[in-house]
Every structure is written in C-alpha cells, then in structure tokens.
C-alpha cells in the first residue's frame, strides 16, 4: 500500500522517510516550547511550533532532520520555529552527520511575528550555507500541501538539491499573494492547472530548480533522499560562476515565454501540453536529457 507524502503529517513523513524507529526528536512537544507571540494575539499555539527537529538514520547513515507541519499555520516560520531549524543546522557543525534533511512545507514568514520570522529565515539561510561550507550536504524534500514559498523558497534553493513531487510547489510569492496584489489577470490562483504548471514540481525540475521529480509516495522520497546522500557541497567561485551562467541563459532563452508550456516546447519536448498528465516515471523518461 503506497503512503501519500502529500497527505501525511510531518511526523508521519519523518517516520516513513528515515530508517524505521530511528528518529529521536529534540525539544519534543512535551518540552512545551511554544510561541509567546501567538498567545499575545489570542491565536492558538502548537507545542512544537509547527516544526519537528531531531536525529535519525537514513540507509544506516546518521542524519539530522527537520519537518515542517503545514497543518499548523501553513508551516509558517516564527521565532521559535526558525530557532529550532537554526539550532539543528548548527548542531550539524558539531556532530557532522552524513547529511541534513529538510522536509519543507511552508508559506514563508508567519505574519503574526513577521519581523522575528524574517530575521529567523535569514539566520536559517546563513546556517544552511555554513553547514554546506563544512562539507555536509543539505537535502530538501518538497511534497506537502502548502508547498514551499516565501523565505523558505529561497532557503530550499540554497541547499544541495530539492527532491520534489508534482504536488510539491516551489516559489517565492504564492499565487494568492500575486493575485491579491496585482489582480486576477496577472495570476489566477484558482486556476489549479496554471498554478501547478507554473510552480509545481514538474516545471521546477525542467528548469533545474529541483534535482529530481518523484511520485507522491513516502517511499519514493526516501529512495531519492538516499541517492542524494552521495552529494558533495560545492560553494566555490567556479560553482557559482557556472550557476550564474545557467541562470543568465534561462533569462535569455525563456524570458519572453508566457507560459510553462512555451518553456517546455523550447526545451525540445514533443507535445509538451501532455506533461501535466504524466506519472512521475513516464515524465522522467520523456524529459531525460531535455532539462535546462
């Protein structure tokens, strides 16, 4: 029986992705580390502030892992939530695990504590880069109901790879934010097909924003995460110059494209309009060698 990653809770995802019974939580709900800012606004708090952090094993290798719970405020980052993530990343500098796994699901900064959340995201950014600078890969898994947006969308792209399902969206400003600010003619957030082909996992993979597209199954995410353990972080000037060249080419090649389908056609994919209908395996076969 296949377990959907999209439908699973953050705790269920950790249990299914890591080796069975290997996960040990740090500051679990029983520690009652909650957000004082939500209380001040009479908004319900969560005993884990919407993020679970701890140690475990993946394919026998020691790893640190964090999972954001979209069911609590859309996985939004507040002061405590962000500090747990920063602390976990810095723990990696001391314990030197094989990798750090981030099971992201977040709409970005939590507005109820917006300043603390924004600062926390920038501290997470610095910490991710410090961990990678120490030679430890940081692996992102993105397949939750809220996707990965706002500052967490930037964080995800600071990491070594993003493993994504079609359902796992990745971007900066969410479609609703763009529609509210710029109007429905700019981005119709209720047009689900448009939303998914713009910020969904298939387009992210074809652009080179995500490293691997997997099916919506916890076992598929686990298998891809095991493969990603072999990655070696590279923050050299040469690596950044290569990335710079690729991003420059992306603007040149696709800057005038109106829709994701135009980009897929420009990549040489035949009948690109069928891509949203394909299962992950067929998608990967058909698009092999044609990614930007």
């Amino acid at each position: 029986m296949t377990q959907s990653y999209y439908e699973a809770s953050a705790r269920e995802r950790l249990a299914a992705v890591l080796d069975p019974s290997s996960f040990q939580e740090i500051l679990p709900p029983s520690a009652r580390v909650t957000s004082p800012h939500l209380r001040q606004l009479d908004t319900p708090a969560a005993f884990d502030d919407g993020i679970i952090v701890g140690e475990g094993r993946l394919d026998g290798q020691p790893v640190l892992a964090a999972a954001q719970e979209g069911g609590f405020m859309g996985g939004a980052v507040g002061e405590v939530h962000g500090a747990k993530l920063v602390g976990l990343l810095e723990r990696a500098l001391d314990t030197r695990p094989t990798a750090v796994l981030l099971l992201v699901e977040s709409g970005g900064v939590r507005l109820h504590e917006a300043n603390a959340g924004l600062i926390a995201v920038s501290e997470v950014m610095r910490a991710v880069l410090a961990v990678r600078g120490a030679g430890i890969p940081v692996i992102v898994l993105d397949g939750g109901q809220f996707g990965c947006f706002g500052g967490m969308g930037i964080v995800a792209r600071l990491c070594d790879t993003v493993i994504i399902s079609e359902e796992g969206r990745l971007g900066l400003s969410g479609p609703e934010v763009i529609e509210t600010t710029c109007g429905v003619e700019e981005f119709d957030s209720r047009d689900r097909a448009l939303v998914w082909r713009t910020v969904g996992g298939k387009h992210r993979t074809l652009l080179g924003e995500a490293g691997e597209l997997v099916a919506d199954a916890t076992a598929a995410f686990r298998a891809a995460a095991i493969r990603a353990l072999a990655l070696t972080p590279d923050l050299s000037l040469e690596a950044l110059e290569r990335e710079h060249a690729a991003l420059g080419q992306r603007i040149e090649r696709f800057g005038d494209c109106h829709d994701a389908v135009d980009i897929w056609r420009a990549l040489g994919i035949e009948a690109p309009e069928r891509l949203p209908l394909l299962e992950a395996a067929d998608f990967n076969t058909i698009t092999a060698g044609k990614r930007a």
């Binding site: 971007g171 710029c182 800057g255 829709d259």
Partner: peptide, 21 residues
C-alpha cells in the same frame, strides 16, 4: 521581491538564492 507570474515562472526564488550564495 517583484510580484509577477513571469518572475515565478522563471524561478525567482532560485535567483534570490543565487545572490545569497
């Protein structure tokens, strides 16, 4: 950040992350 569908289509979060890197 610039709010537009085109920026999202091109992966603006990746460009922001690139700048940070």
């Amino acid at each position: 950040q610039r709010l537009s569908r085109r920026d999202e289509l091109l992966g603006i979060n990746g460009y922001m992350a690139h700048l940070a890197k």
